[in-house]
Design a binder for these strands. Sequence first.
DNA 1: GCCATCAGGATTATCGATAATCTCTTTGAA
DNA 2: TTCAAAGAGATTATCGATAATCCTGATGGC
Lengths: 250, 250
Amino acid sequence: MKTATVKSKPAAGNTSPPAVDHGQRRQRIVDELLAEIVQGKLRAGERLRIQTLANRFGVSQSPIREALVTLEGIGIVDIEANRGAIVRKISLAEVREISQVRLALECAAVKRACGRADHSRLQSLIESFEKMASRQISERDLKSNSARLQKAIQSARELDSEFHDLIAAWSGNRFLERELSRLKLLFRAFRDNAWGQTHSAREVTRITEEAREHLEIAQAILSGNSREAARTMSRHIRNGVKYWAHGLPE
Amino acid sequence: MKTATVKSKPAAGNTSPPAVDHGQRRQRIVDELLAEIVQGKLRAGERLRIQTLANRFGVSQSPIREALVTLEGIGIVDIEANRGAIVRKISLAEVREISQVRLALECAAVKRACGRADHSRLQSLIESFEKMASRQISERDLKSNSARLQKAIQSARELDSEFHDLIAAWSGNRFLERELSRLKLLFRAFRDNAWGQTHSAREVTRITEEAREHLEIAQAILSGNSREAARTMSRHIRNGVKYWAHGLPE
DNA sequence: GCCATCAGGATTATCGATAATCTCTTTGAA
DNA sequence: TTCAAAGAGATTATCGATAATCCTGATGGC
């Protein structure tokens, strides 16, 4: 009886294609354009022509326009009335600028997180960071076992995301949390695109470094020392920028 | 032949209305909705129905949708896929939250402005603040001469805007400048709507207080003391919130 | 030659209509 | 009764077409 319960599923041999992403088009387009801009496939100053994009994505103009408005809100595209959208420059200088904003907000968040954080959760994060910080990755792994390496990088990224998300949540400030998540969109795009392709020894080094930095931050939060938390967070973010500097134009 | 060529100029008694705001509709709608939300005419949790708004503004659905996307980016409206837009809560608690974000960013900006500011410009601002801080407004003005009072309030607001804009520009960080200007949209809406109606003695007091705070900040920038600049800016913003607290629900 | 004006084509902004999805109520069987 | 399923109405998301605006290059008067 329940076999027919499938709601949104096309029910196998259905005749009418139910259109896979109704209501998700804008978001999908935003993500793709964002990635391409950060990767440099779309150059600074380039015009984003609506009809061209509509053809490329196989959709009509409306979702494209809305995606462009969203990108303008994110601050990565400029829209001039009756003249259309152009890609803003995202070179190292801009990444630095955005990082400064992130720095200010992450520090504000981590200060507030002191005293509000869930300590048992924090404790388990600390253990993860310790494990990751002490993990040795051999030259052998680096060259031969790219699958394991890939996995390590992946899990490091996930842990990083989770940690920063938690801090934002613990800040107890929903608006701040929102702003940080908006910035994270940008940073994730940088991270995954700008330097994600080369799995160098340097990257592995950075992962253990990051784990150590995360550890410091987590411990500061645990001890309720908000000044120290902000200080370590600040260092963490500045180190990140310094590291990325290599994979970016200019 | 050319009679139909009429381009942008209505040519006096033209028969065809040339549509006044092509390319400006979205922005206009954003502004109006923003004001209404802050004023409480649109309540928290209320659904913003596209067709309803389209009728009200006398436009089609497209500009409305784009305006809603913009408002989502500003963080004052939530859009759920296939379910539409609802107004986020903006009570005192939320104003506090937003203010914390603003605090972090304004302080970052003012720190960076130290050493980058245009000193002659700064000097002239300082004179304006001094004049405003020492200005006495009599009881008589307060009651009888509402026109003059109005003008004083107006010019105080303009000076405030100008000062904060300049600091953002002096920060030398365009992204930061953008973020601040986005937040300013919100704050201006609060200021002009939430407590703008009552021109009380209290408001006049606040104006001279603000002038004094601005003065402190400007002098700190002038002397290049970034720590002091951040400290005074922080106080300034927190005082502002404290003052607004009266005109807001909850 | 220099400047203002104006077609012509390209592109954006807006519109009105259609398709997809949600919400709520009703129905009928276990 | 309780639950799943179906249907009606409302609303959103998307589409394709039209109107408005911009850009470029040519034209013609001075």
